[in-house]
């Protein structure tokens, strides 16, 4: 098997636990993400999702292990890895437009002012921010609009990898739905590789090609990699009709409700901890050549 676009190898993170000991958040985590893939990671609060994301962003260094993107080791933050933070992280003294041009100017330092602005406006328009609203300060925008600006800023920079940390966590369900659709739309046009943290199962099924499931910490593991066997383009009202939808959903609920606890606290013993690949497909004739315990669930160890 060829190396994936992004590979995380034997990544371990420990922190001082505040009482003189060490807290091992995760150990020897090993997984990969392919180019153009949309991957969501699900896990209980505190299991280490943000820690993983900060390492992928280059904002933090793992205690040990390496992250490679396109074959090169990640060290420090880079314009190739765009980040959308949960709290939007817009610069409050800049207008909406200036927040986006801030990023574009950093990415394309030799573009003319007019070109930078046109580019920023184009991406703001993709998330439905047009006209006078682009001159407002972030404090004059609703939470949903702020997150749109943050998404526009990230996409406008064409990063090779886009990282999103619970981007919709603070939004109400309706706004969240609209922005998810917008995110799918821009992502569809760019074939961007996306790694997104979420705690919303339905959101993950709607958006992702693959969902990584994390067990509880400490010694959390990326235990499973569940493929979303629902064809695109997806639409929130139609996907629930798909035969695989509830099968996948039940599997995820079951994992988060029960197995994330049962599997918690297992030490790696120095072995790379790769997720088990899970494919749930109830459409068509059973493609399954090997016998498994559950008929519609196939687990493959990579």
């Amino acid at each position: 098997m060829s190396k994936p676009f992004l590979s995380i190898e034997n990544m371990t993170q420990t922190f001082p636990d505040g009482q003189g000991g060490t807290l091992t958040v995760f150990e020897d985590a090993t997984f990969g993400i392919d180019k153009g893939e949309f991957v969501c990671i699900l896990g209980h609060s505190g299991c280490g999702k943000s820690t993983i994301m900060n390492i992928l962003a280059g904002l933090a260094e793992p205690t040990s292990g390496v992250v490679k993107m396109d074959g090169f080791e990640v060290s420090g933050p880079s314009l190739d890895r765009g980040v959308v933070f949960q709290n939007y992280s817009l610069l409050p003294w800049l207008s909406t437009l200036k927040n986006v041009t801030f990023g574009v100017k950093a990415r394309y330092p030799d573009w003319s002012k007019a070109k930078v602005e046109a580019h920023a406006r184009e991406y703001l328009a993709m998330v439905g921010l047009e006209g006078d609203v682009v001159h407002r300060k972030p404090s004059q925008l609703s939470g949903g609009m702020r997150q749109r600006v943050s998404i526009a800023r990230a996409f406008a920079n064409h990063p090779k990898l886009l990282l999103l940390d619970e981007p919709f966590g603070a939004l109400d369900a309706l706004t969240r739905g609209t922005i998810q659709d917008e995110l799918l739309k821009i992502w569809g046009g760019t074939e961007q590789t996306v790694f997104m943290i979420t705690h919303d199962i339905d959101e993950a099924i709607l958006l992702a090609d693959r969902i990584l499931l994390m067990t509880n910490g400490p010694f959390a593991r990326v235990a499973e990699s569940v493929e979303i066997t629902i064809p695109r383009p997806r639409n929130r009202t139609d996907i629930v009709e798909h035969p695989n939808y509830y099968a996948i959903r039940n599997h995820l609920v079951q994992f988060l409700g029960q197995r994330s606890k049962e599997l918690a606290g297992q030490q790696s013993g120095g072995e790379p901890q790769s997720p088990t690949r899970v494919v749930i497909d109830k459409t068509g004739p059973a493609p399954d050549p090997e016998p498994t315990t559950k008929p519609q669930l196939r687990a493959v160890n990579d």
């Binding site: 904002l59 933050p77 992280s89």
Partner: peptide
Amino acid sequence: QDWVNVARTHEL
């Protein structure tokens, strides 16, 4: 720190 991180992710 978020704002500093914005600067860092934009390689300023």
